[in-house]
Structures are given as structure tokens and as C-alpha cells.
Design a binder for these strands. Structure first.
Lengths: 242, 242
DNA sequence: GAGCATTTGTCCGTATGTATT
DNA sequence: CAATACATACGGACAAATGCT
């Protein structure tokens, strides 16, 4: 019945299988093609954007979107770079800052330390194909690795730096994933609209042998760029499902 | 600079703390109040809807929305009804159908059975405060509980029926959560727009002692009604984080 | 850097359709 | 049935970002 949904469905079918980044017809083009006003053509493209099928950029145009699957699992734990590359994308991580701070209360509790314990505070952004898709911070007590910054400028992976310079074996001990709307800070850092859904991935790493807390992190990721899938493989205590 | 975002932010601040279900000013009211056209007032309300702060119903109005947190965790496993009630909501589960079918391939693999094995196929919908928020299906091999339908009409909980009539102890063995856009089937069942984000929660229950697959399920839940949080507490194998 | 065309973003006024109350 | 409220659509206008000359 509604014209713009017909157009959206039609376009969705046409775009199915197109390569990511392919250009989609502009609003005026669609308007003349389907014999509607610009408003209806615009609504159709916006509908496709809500369905995460396209990405729209003011001044540039509308382009086919694609999401990569990021599986967080106990049994099959792929790294970020590997995941993105396997999906045919180009990953990039940018180190924004490395500070030396006292541990905030929440992070201290997770790491099993006293609040105020000296720690490295690492802030990094993540890109897929030059598109800013993630922002996150990591806390590592300084006694784990005294001069983390030296290693971080040479190697990209915090994990690797911990293993080589800290001589520890970090394993993921706890992880929590939820879908949120970005708080003001993340809004600015990720340069997104307030209505863009983002995943919050919180994580804690402990030493494999001693069990001591080594690192905890919080990472925000755009849901229109990544599809996070959480798999719990272990047998878990009973849940009454009704 | 943009007028409608100013209005949206203003309204968001005003609505903060309002009781869920509270009525929000209509488009014409907002238009005259802020001295803008109906288009700008409408955009502001749509922005709030994208932020999941309000719910809009044609013919009725715009109302304050609220999401309940549903935590899927190993350490603290609450039931659906308990979770909703703890959040101050009224949960309801409606049994749509109970069929006897042969197990499809995917479900058979999960349950460790042969495809085509006779099984109960249970379809149910879930409501929060009379709002349709979830739709899901469950598969239970008939040899686990021969006459499941009898029990299901008396008790709401599949888990309880399995314990009482099947004399087994189901525990969650595997669980997978992802955020999706609803496929056509779910679109119809949940009566939502194609752009409404929904969670897909897949789950497998095994017997606590024998380890035999008892039940597997797939449940779709509206993300504007529920915020799913997944917690992995167990120590998981190493993941290289970069 | 300046200028220009293209494209999306915002906004107006108006009208009609459709669902709810 | 009538009033209300949201949904769709038109035509027109200007703003803002992008990409190219």
C-alpha cells in the first residue's frame, strides 16, 4: 500500500548481492524513476538505512553496507584483526593515548586491586576500511608491565606486549556484552548520531597460572558495522525457562 | 543548529524519570509550543523513538518507553517471568501451538539425534504488559516426554514439565545471542516493521547427569522492549585482543 | 584555495490516509 | 460517527557536506 516501502523492498532485492561500497541511486534519480516526490524516495532510502542495508553520507551519496560477524566464544576465539580480514575488510587500530592513572573503583574491583593503584590507561580506536567503528579503553596495573607504552608503539596487540614484556599468560576470565545507545562521551569519540546502536563489550583478563587480574577493558562498537555474536559453550547452572 | 534535535534533547531531558506509559505531547502541540512546523516536531518524536525513549502508536499517541534488562549468565540465571516481574512489568506467555514433527537437520544436530526423530514442536509468544515482545519455538524429542502437551496446558514452564513428567534435570549447555533484523516469518509473528531490531537467543538444554540433549529453542525478542546482557563468567580459552 | 555541481539534511505548508479513542 | 493522532506524500526552499575542477 505504502509507496516508499514498495520502493524500499524493490531496492533491497536489487541490491542483494551487490558488493559493499557500491553506489545506490540518489534521491532525485529514484524519485523520477518511480514517479514519486523526493520525500518518498528519501523515505525508501532511510528505510534501507534502518535495515542496515545501506550507509548514507551527506554530500557523497548512498552506498551498500555490510556488517562483519564478530564471534565471542569460549571454543573459538578469533582476534579482531583476523576476524575483519577473514571477512574481506581492512582493520586498523589507532593508539589515541597511554596515560598513567590511579585505577577507578569499578576497574580496581574487577582486577582485584585497591582503587588508586597505579595503572596504564590505554585508549584506542578501531577502523574497518577507514570507517571509525570502535572506541575503547584498557586498564593494566603498572606492576604487570612497567613500561607498556614502549611495547605498544612497536606492537599493536596489548596481549602480545603482556606476554613478551610482562611475562604473563593472559586469558579471558569474564566478558559481558550488551547493546546500548551511546553515552555522551562515546557519542563524541565515535562521531555518531545519538540513535546509533552500539555494543558495549566489557572484558577482564587474568593470568592463566596465578589467576591475578592483568587487564580489564571496555570497548564500544557500532552495531551497523559489526554483528556481535556471543556463544556460551560451557554447561551453565540451571535456568528456569518459561 | 538543527531545530528538531534541540527539541528532541529538550524532551528527552523532560521525560527523564517519567513513568513508562506516560503520554508525550502530540506533534501539533509540540509544533505550536516550539514555534516550528509539524515536520520538525515529528522529526523530534521520531528521534526519541530511535533512541528507544518513546513508543509511538498511530491513532493513539506517543508514550514513554522502558526496557527491562534480561541478563543471561552462568552465575545468576533468572527466569523470564521473574526478570520481568522484578522490573515491575507483567509477563505473559501464550501457547500458540504444540505439534509433533520430525526434527529438522539443525535442531537434530544440536540435540545429538538423527534428523527426522519424532519431537514436540512448541511455539509460544511472550508479552510484557500486554505488548507482544517475543516469539519463539522449542523442540523436545518425544522420548524425553511422550505427552508434553498435557503438561504444557497445566503448567507454563517447559522446564518444569520436563522435570516432573520427563524425570530429567535440564541444564543450559549452550547459548548464543545475536542482534538481528527480523526475517519474514518473525516479521509477521511479532507484528513489527522490517527495521525493528530483535535479539535472536538460541539455546540448548542437556540432562545434568546423562548429558543427553533434552530441548533446543530459538527465541526472538524485540530490542526496544528488552535489553539483553550476556555475561560469561567462566575462564575461557585465550583470545588475542589487539 | 576558490568555485561549482551533486547529494543528503533540514524545514516549511498543505493535504490525505488510517488507526485509535 | 466524530475527534484525535500518527503515517504518508507533494512541492518547494535552503543548508551543509562532499568531490571535483
Amino acid at each position: 500500500m505504502t509507496r516508499y516501502l514498495e520502493i524500499a523492498d524493490r531496492l533491497a532485492a536489487e541490491l542483494d548481492g551487490s558488493a559493499p561500497g557500491t553506489r545506490v541511486a540518489s534521491e532525485p534519480e529514484l524519485a523520477s524513476r518511480f514517479g514519486v516526490g523526493r520525500a518518498a524516495a528519501r523515505s525508501a532510502l532511510q528505510e534501507l538505512e534502518r535495515r542496515l542495508l545501506v550507509r548514507r553520507v551527506q554530500g557523497a551519496g548512498t552506498f551498500v553496507n555490510s556488517r562483519i560477524d564478530y564471534v565471542i566464544s569460549g571454543s573459538r576465539p578469533p582476534s579482531w584483526h583476523t576476524t575483519v580480514e577473514a571477512a574481506g575488510g581492512t582493520p586498523r587500530t589507532v593508539l589515541k593515548s597511554v596515560d598513567r592513572v590511579g585505577l577507578p573503583e569499578a576497574e580496581a574491583a574487577r582486577l582485584g586491586r585497591q582503587p588508586g593503584t597505579p595503572a596504564h590507561h590505554v585508549v584506542r580506536t578501531r577502523y574497518i576500511n577507514s570507517l571509525l567503528t570502535g572506541w575503547g579503553e584498557e586498564w593494566i596495573p603498572v606492576d604487570v608491565v612497567p613500561d607498556l607504552d614502549l611495547g605498544l608503539h612497536a606492537v599493536d596487540s596489548v596481549d602480545l606486549v603482556l606476554r613478551q614484556m610482562g611475562r604473563v599468560s593472559p586469558v579471558r576470565a569474564w566478558c559481558r556484552v550488551s547493546l546500548e545507545l551511546p553515552p555522551p562521551r562515546v557519542l563524541r569519540e565515535l562521531e555518531v548520531e545519538p540513535s546509533t546502536p552500539v555494543y558495549l563489550i566489557e572484558s577482564l583478563s587474568k593470568d592463566e597460572t596465578t589467576g591475578a587480574g592483568l587487564m580489564c577493558s571496555g570497548a564500544w562498537t557500532r552495531a551497523d558495522a559489526v554483528r556481535v555474536i556471543v556463544e556460551m559453550s560451557e554447561t551453565i547452572t540451571h535456568e528456569e525457562e518459561r
